[in-house]
Design a protein around this nucleic acid. Structure first.
Length: 602
DNA sequence: GCAAGGTC
């Protein structure tokens, strides 16, 4: 028998379908396995659920009050089975006992490599003489899979080492600093409550708090602008000067010079607004937060359910290019039975060309709808979440249709009038062609037309006035903006970014209200303490630096032990700096904890 | 009871 191990059930299923044609679904220790005939031999494809193993400290070290947190710097975390995936371990053991040939068909990324290694460890324990191969495919398609199995290779140990190093480093740093700040304020916490540090979650908090403090410390400044109602060829146009005056007096002096002028420029230029590129995870989360009022965690949870229900493709992807193997016309045909069927039909008869982004994770296609569903159907599956599930499904459908649609066309308009010293401007636009906005209302723009005038025409100011304005603080951080910043700084992965935001919410460090991230007193106190005494723990650039160091294991063969030693040494310094200020940190955190407790009680 | 990363 040949055993094939995949990262998730859907891939195991696809492999059985592509390599075997027909298959038989079996349950092994409660786990789905696909049995099929592979070139005359019996094969079984088993789908896992991510990692089988994890790291943890020894039991004695897991009683927080028994050892000082810094002792963990000197400890070696142990590799253990993850309790949640024991049934996959059992299924793998059962199958491994009956096979001599194993193909590790996990995703073609570093995590997949690590999971492959975990599976290989298990297989070896059961069956030391089994031949173990690694197969790599860049998409779950007939061609890629067939090719991969024709060219089996071996596990890349450096990739495995990178992942295992990251696991140990993150656990150690997370545990040391989580325990330190928790124990510092232990008596002010509720039962079961703790304060946490993590190399992703904490920089996320830092970003949000930094913005909030910028807003609080912002000193608005008054400034003055000159506006005028200008008559050109019988048309009256509201115009303004693109100059900020510091005082009213200066503005009024400038305004006094405005009476007769001449049109310096009159531009009416067509402009294409291109439809969005194919949908990736973080973009789905950003748009759902901004336009549908659904936060990123909820969005991914619902997308996962929609995927499992067969409504949309796999929701965790960084790809923004439709693979050539994806038959877009087939997808449109499927959508023809759904709520936007008329539009799908129209695209099919008129023809279409998909937009194209610039990223390909070489594992998953962009997110697209896989079924033309009705509201009633979704309502049945989702119960209380039905309105939000429908909103997300509808969005995925519309986004997909938009990527195949023509651009919208607007005429951009600009008139500039010269009044001697000062120039006045007006901008407007006319929607010429709605294009993809017809089914993508969130980006729709409206017409604000200007009259048609020509350069050289005389102009006359009918009314001139000075308007007082104030500079404004930066806006509150939106969740959508936060996701964009996390991506920019390399904090987390497409699949985990929403988790890191949510962790901050769960710990009481911030709230998300109407798409805005608002730090609590506790979040501000924690972030401020860290910025003051150990900024390296909270700066947004720390994660990318660590990621780069970890990558050197793969690219340069840096020995993991050396890297772990160096990172620990560095963070021990930050730990010492924090410990020296324990009393101040304790006071700041306790004040915040008490104030939030009082406000909760009203 | 700590993290981040897979996946459900």
């Amino acid at each position: 028998m040949i055993l094939i191990v995949a990262e998730k059930r859907s891939v195991a299923h696809a492999i059985a379908k592509f390599l075997g044609g027909g298959y038989k679904l079996e349950k092994i220790q409660g786990v789905a396995a696909y049995r099929f005939n592979y070139g005359g031999r019996e094969a079984v494809a088993l789908g896992l659920s991510g990692h089988l193993m994890d790291f943890d400290f020894a039991a004695r070290q897991n009683v927080w009050t028994w050892i000082p947190p810094e002792e963990l710097f000197a400890s070696q975390p142990l590799i253990v089975y993850r309790p949640e995936t024991m049934k996959y371990v059992k299924a793998l053991r059962t199958l491994a006992a009956r096979t001599h040939e194993v193909y590790l068909a996990l995703d073609a990324d570093v995590e997949g490599e690590a999971i492959a290694y975990e599976a290989a460890l298990l297989v070896r324990l059961m069956n030391p003489r089994a031949k173990i191969y690694r197969v790599r495919f860049n998409a779950v398609t007939q061609r890629e899979i067939t090719n991969a199995f024709r060219n089996p290779t071996h596990i890349n140990l450096r990739m495995v080492e990178k992942v295992f190093t990251r696991m140990q480093v993150d656990l150690t740093l997370g545990a040391v600093f989580t325990r330190f700040i928790t124990l510092a304020v232990r008596h002010s916490l509720d039962r079961g409550q703790f304060l946490s540090y993590g190399p992703c979650q904490t920089p996320v908090l830092g970003i949000v708090v930094t913005r909030e403090l910028q807003r609080r410390n912002f000193k608005p400044e008054k400034y003055y602008v000159v506006k005028a109602l200008v008559e050109i060829d019988g048309h009256r146009i509201e115009m303004s000067a693109d100059v900020r005056f510091k005082t009213r007096k200066e503005a009024e002096e400038a305004a006094a010079t405005i009476s007769r002028g001449v049109v310096k420029a009159a531009v009416y230029k067509p402009h294409h607004v291109n439809p969005p590129v194919p949908l990736e995870t973080v973009e789905l989360e950003k748009r759902a937060s901004r336009w549908l009022g659904i936060n990123s965690k909820r969005t991914l949870d619902i997308a996962e359910e929609l995927y499992r229900g067969g409504y949309i493709s796999y929701p965790r992807t960084e790809t923004t290019i439709y693979p050539p193997t994806l038959d877009l016309r087939e997808v449109l045909q499927e959508l023809a039975s759904g709520h936007l069927g008329y539009y799908a039909d129209e695209l099919m008869s008129r023809g279409f060309r998909p937009t194209r982004g610039d990223s390909d994770d070489r594992a998953h296609p962009p997110i697209y709808p896989t079924r033309g569903a009705t509201k009633g159907e979704i309502a049945k599956t989702f119960g209380k979440l039905a309105p939000q599930a429908w909103a997300i499904y509808d969005f995925v459908v519309r986004h997909f249709l938009a990527t195949l649609s023509p651009p919208a066309v607007v005429e951009k308009q600009k008139i500039v009038v010269s009044f001697g010293k000062l120039e006045m401007e007006a901008e407007g636009q006319i929607v010429v062609d709605e294009g993809y906005w017809r089914i993508y209302p969130w980006e729709r723009q409206s017409s604000k037309p200007l009259p048609r005038v020509s350069p050289g025409e005389p102009a006359r100011a009918v009314k001139v006035y000075v308007v007082e304005r104030e500079t404004e603080p930066p806006p509150q951080m939106t969740e959508s903006e936060l996701l964009a910043l996390m991506k920019k700084y390399g904090i987390g992965t497409d699949a985990t970014m929403q988790d890191h935001i949510h962790t901050n919410v769960r710990r009481g460090y911030m709230k998300i209200t109407k798409g805005k991230c608002i730090p609590t007193d506790l979040g501000i106190a924690l972030a401020t303490s860290l910025f003051q005494f150990a900024p390296q723990l909270i700066e947004p650039t720390v994660r990318a630096k660590m990621e780069k160091a970890l990558n050197s294991i793969v690219t340069d063969g840096t020995p993991p032990a050396r890297l772990i030693y160096e990172i620990k040494k560095e963070f021990e310094e930050y730990y010492k700096a924090l410990k020296a200020r324990k009393e101040e940190i304790k006071k700041a955190l306790e004040t915040a904890l008490n104030s939030s407790r009082n406000s909760q009680r009203g």
